[in-house]
Design a protein around this nucleic acid. Structure first.
Lengths: 179, 179
DNA sequence: GTCTATAGTGGGATAGAC
DNA sequence: GTCTATCCCACTATAGAC
């Protein structure tokens, strides 16, 4: 079910990705600089380049880990009761709530797919595809809804008093009715 | 119907906002620096600060203009035929397609509402609220769907062959059925 | 594998003269 | 209202020594 991520080769490279991920999760994307990553490890920034080609590749490695973890969470929830669409949405929503900065990095920018661990994006997408009754158009629409709800909430775009549980439920009901 | 935006006081300040908006639309957000704005006007960057308090306020002014224009487009489309929800979605989608960088600035980040022209966000939101049958939860869910479709497309997140017209239609049908 | 030194680039913003 | 001069910040990345 869960796969062990085929993460970078050497222990040092792996450590860099781990440290960078933790820095991202605690401090946000703006804090994710090569200098700060190096600081946390106890080396100088230029030394990072012996282990990681450049920053884009490092971010791609973090994103790959994120997709693995999201896919793990999706697959672990298969056992849970209820409608598959609701279940998938619940996992999606709590993943984003638990890892807001990681979620943003994973979804709220253009993606350099060629730098990702191969297949990792598809694996996370498969759960939603199944939950949408293997209807690709419906799955994309439902993903757009889930991402929209998530990112608008993270960006504080809804009015202060908005009942987001209710909005989620209305949307999910809409998509369930189409399947 | 359309309101004239209560834009900045002096002609110079207004020109700065116009030039900045044009720079944003043609070159994207990364190109939107005080130096480049000044270049286009033919003055030096420090002189901008005589007319605009700082960059955040300038961006907020641009965003306000964006909301005015979106609201104008929504209201102008009231005359068009078809379901209000479809009509609103069509306008939303073409606004984003026509002004991708502006759309991103308006929606894909946290919003400093206190710097916006008062009421401008509500005015744009009202059309969707009406189209959703004055159901706030449904309107928020529909907005999330529309924003998700839009921003995921702008960020090239859908697979190469994806039929986005079909995905839009599936989502809109879902929301129509709930109203 | 790590270091120092540094290049190169860009950014926002202020002080004070005119 | 605009200018010059400048500060201060931060970043990615490379060269070359050890």
């Amino acid at each position: 079910m869960a796969t062990s991520a085929p993460e970078p080769r050497t222990p040092r490279a792996q450590q860099i990705v781990e440290v960078a991920l933790e820095l991202l999760e605690t401090q946000g994307h703006d804090a994710l600089s090569m200098r700060r990553i190096a600081d946390r490890i106890g080396i100088r920034a230029p030394s990072l380049y012996e282990h990681v080609p450049d920053k884009r590749a490092l971010e791609a490695a973090i994103i790959s880990v994120g997709f693995e973890r999201l896919a793990d969470a999706f697959e672990a929830a298969t056992a849970q009761p209820g409608d598959p669409l609701d279940r998938t949405a619940r996992v999606y929503r709590s993943f984003a709530a638990a890892h807001p900065h990681l979620y943003r990095l994973m979804t709220a920018r253009e993606l350099h797919r060629e730098l990702l661990t191969p297949g990792v994006e598809d694996r996370a997408g498969r759960t939603l595809y199944e939950a949408a009754g293997r209807d690709a158009d419906l799955a994309r629409a439902a993903w757009a809804f889930a991402h929209g709800m998530t990112i608008l909430e993270l960006d504080n775009r809804f009015p202060a008093g908005a009942d987001l549980d209710a909005a989620w439920e209305r949307g999910l009901a809409a998509f369930r009715s189409q399947r």
